[in-house]
């Protein structure tokens, strides 16, 4: 896999680059498959909300998020919005035009997962830490008054070769932690069902 020093955009110190770990950057035409564990720690709830499943990320096209535990549900997130299916039936459809934060949310998530947070530099102030094997990127909204991000305190993305965890910390104390494993990078090859889901949400 070709590696690109896109993180230069994030003011990475040039001299450190030779030794430090860097995320592998996914390009359009590639895909990332893997499994996820998600834990939502919400204030006012007795226990965290945990879910597990698998995902498919197609940079530039969208993310298919299939939970299997504690119940089966499929969610498709693209720049155009969100589509949720329960037992194969459409349960909710949210166009990005209705929820201004949604487009940004997709950018953040997809940018972080594809190892290419360069597009986020405009919106977030970035902090970078790395040693020889692992790296960590901290994103904080540049404008506290940006209403689309008002609820987000910070986002911490970390990993080795590929992204392994994304933690979204909310201003009200809530936090969502997503961890990824069994990730496989390859040429884009969505199956027919995934293809159909992404097409349903393309603008």
């Amino acid at each position: 896999m070709r590696r690109r020093a896109l993180l230069l955009a994030l003011a990475l110190p040039a001299r450190a680059m030779a030794q430090e770990a860097r995320p592998e950057v996914l390009r359009e035409g590639q895909q990332l498959r893997g499994r996820f564990t998600q834990e939502r720690r919400l204030q006012g709830f007795a226990r965290p909300l945990r879910s597990e499943g698998d995902f498919l990320l197609l940079p530039g096209r969208g993310l298919v998020w299939r939970a299997t535990v504690p119940f089966a549900s499929t969610m498709v997130i693209t720049p155009a919005g969100i589509l949720q299916l329960l037992e194969g039936r459409e349960a909710m459809r949210l166009p990005a035009s209705r929820m201004p934060g949604l487009g940004q949310f997709y950018q953040v998530l997809a940018g972080a997962m594809s190892g290419d947070p360069s597009s986020l530099g405009q919106v977030f102030a970035t902090g970078w830490q790395a040693d020889a094997t692992r790296w960590q990127l901290t994103l904080t909204p540049r404008r506290a008054d940006d209403p689309a991000l008002a609820s987000i305190a910070s986002i911490v993305v970390s990993g080795a070769r590929l992204v392994e965890a994304v933690e979204v910390r909310k201003a009200n104390g809530d936090a969502d932690l997503m961890t990824f494993h069994d990730q496989r990078v390859g040429p884009a090859a969505p199956d027919a069902a995934e293809q159909a889901l992404l097409t349903q949400l393309s603008p």
Partner: peptide, 15 residues
């Protein structure tokens, strides 16, 4: 549906 929204990565819903 409410459960799916609550568990979704888009982080719908808080207390």
């Amino acid at each position: 549906r409410a459960r799916a929204m609550l568990f979704s990565p888009a982080g719908f819903g808080d207390a």
